[in-house]
């Protein structure tokens, strides 16, 4: 799936994560900002990659600013952002949720 527009989901408040997805041409490139990047950076990135992969997105630039979000929050924000970026928010893909 091709990214149709740049989209954001989430906030910068405590326990949340803000994820922005933009078109890319070189795989899934994630730039992550987090206070716990050493401990959980790889895991946070993997959660986001899994969501995008489930939606069939192969190329995208992703920016994530983490404020200590739990895994399910990261997943929820990634889903919201990718649905907006693919312009399918009105017809969510239940099978990948």
């Amino acid at each position: 799936m091709e990214i149709k527009r740049i989209a954001t989901a989430g906030t910068l408040e405590s326990s949340d994560i803000q994820i922005t997805i933009a078109p890319g041409n070189n795989g899934l490139q994630i730039e992550l900002q987090s206070d716990v990047i050493k401990q959980f950076g790889a895991q946070i990135k993997q959660t986001i990659i899994d969501v995008l992969t489930n939606y069939g997105v192969q190329n995208a630039q992703i920016k994530a600013v983490d404020k200590g979000a739990l895994d399910l929050v990261i997943k929820a924000r990634a889903i919201a952002a990718v649905q907006r970026a693919l312009e399918i928010s009105e017809e969510p893909r239940w099978e990948v949720l």
Binding site: A7, T8, T11, L12, E13, S14, Q18, K67
Partner: peptide, 15 residues
């Protein structure tokens, strides 16, 4: 906390 709230709100409005 306050700084991030303000910037979040601005980013949301920009979005």
């Amino acid at each position: 906390v306050r700084f991030n709230k303000i910037i979040s709100a601005l980013i949301q409005r920009l979005d």
